[in-house]
Simulated assay, not measured.
Amino acid sequence: MGIPISFGRRLVAHVSLLSLILLGVSWMWADFSSFPPLETWSMILGYLSFILIGCTLLIGPLQSWLPARWMAINLSIRRDIGIWAGLTGLLHVILVLVLFESEPRLMILQENRSEKTDGWLGLFFFASSDLTMWPSPNWTLAGVANYLGLLAFFILLALWLTSSARAEKWLGGSSWKRLHLANPWLFVIVLFHGLIYIHSIKGEPHTFSDMLVFAAMIWVIRSISFIQRAFFRKR
């Protein structure tokens, strides 16, 4: 018999997650103090969304090592973490669009803005000298990072909007599961989006290890869990 999920338990989970997010913001703020405040919020929220998405990928493997009666509460915790991953990710995107639409602009290194279209569209397109021509796609490294971020945004939005039990019932169990199988792909896309920015666009305090160590840890834990399940299933 599983552990029942009450409103009070969900409330405690959300308050705890919000407290951890605020703690993470306060911990990282000093490292980003050289950036304008809105940009600092944008970058920190992006990092936190990446971490929370990764945490949702750990719930399944951890559940395989816990008693079966914990399954309901673990699934509830994964859903709550996913909600906050979506919220922090969407706030990150909104702040990026605001920063590119008005002052202050993002502090971007190694990028030529002279040929870009105005506003947030400059993230994705180069302006054409011929006014009758459509803007051309931005296939620079920065542009690829932006396209990956846009793809991640749509996936994250779809997962976030369907994170409730009502949405699961409306979509049907099998369709809902197929949609949420995109979660590992979302993590990989966000990982490459962040790595490109760290490598060629942003400078310190970003480093590859910020994201790669966490991604490697998730890969190892999920791999061990997969091998264990396959071994016991074969037996």
Rank of each mutant, 00 (worst) to 15 (best):
S33K: 11
S33E: 15
S34Y: 08
F35L: 13
P36M: 00
P37W: 02
P37V: 02
L38C: 03
L38E: 05
E39M: 15
E39W: 06
E39I: 06
W41Y: 13
S42Q: 07
S42D: 03
M43V: 11
L45F: 14
L45H: 04
L45Q: 04
L45M: 15
L45A: 14
Y47D: 11
L48P: 05
S49W: 08
F50Q: 10
F50H: 11
F50N: 08
I51N: 08
L52S: 13
I53Y: 10
G54A: 09
G54K: 06
L57K: 04
L58H: 03
L58S: 00
L58F: 03
I59H: 03
G60T: 12
P61F: 01
L62V: 09
S64H: 10
S64R: 12
S64Q: 10
W65G: 05
L66A: 15
L66F: 13
P67I: 10
A68K: 07
A68Q: 11
A68C: 03
W70S: 15
M71T: 13
M71A: 12
M71E: 11
I73S: 15
N74P: 04
N74M: 15
L75W: 11
L75V: 12
S76E: 12
S76F: 01
I77K: 02
I77N: 03
R78F: 06
R78Y: 06
R78Q: 15
R78A: 13
R79S: 15
R79L: 06
R79W: 06
D80A: 14
I81W: 04
I83S: 08
W84M: 13
W84D: 06
G86A: 04
G89E: 14
L90G: 14
L91T: 06
H92M: 05
H92F: 04
I94R: 02
I94M: 11
I94Q: 01
I94D: 00
L95K: 01
L95M: 06
V96A: 07
V96E: 02
V96D: 02
F100L: 11
F100E: 13
F100V: 05
F100C: 04
F100M: 13
E101A: 14
E101Q: 12
E101I: 01
E103A: 14
E103I: 08
R105F: 07
R105V: 02
R105N: 07
L106V: 09
L106I: 09
L106M: 14
L106F: 00
L106G: 09
I108G: 01
L109A: 14
L109Q: 10
L109M: 14
Q110E: 14
N112R: 09
N112E: 07
S114H: 06
E115R: 10
E115F: 15
K116F: 13
K116W: 06
K116T: 10
K116Q: 12
K116Y: 09
T117P: 01
T117Y: 00
T117D: 02
W120S: 04
W120R: 00
L121H: 01
L123K: 04
L123R: 01
F124D: 02
F126W: 15
F126Q: 04
A127C: 10
S128G: 03
S128K: 03
S128P: 02
S128A: 11
S129A: 10
D130L: 02
D130S: 02
D130V: 00
D130T: 00
D130G: 00
L131F: 05
M133L: 14
W134C: 02
P135R: 01
P137E: 05
N138M: 01
N138G: 01
W139D: 03
T140L: 05
L141H: 07
L141P: 13
G143L: 05
V144R: 06
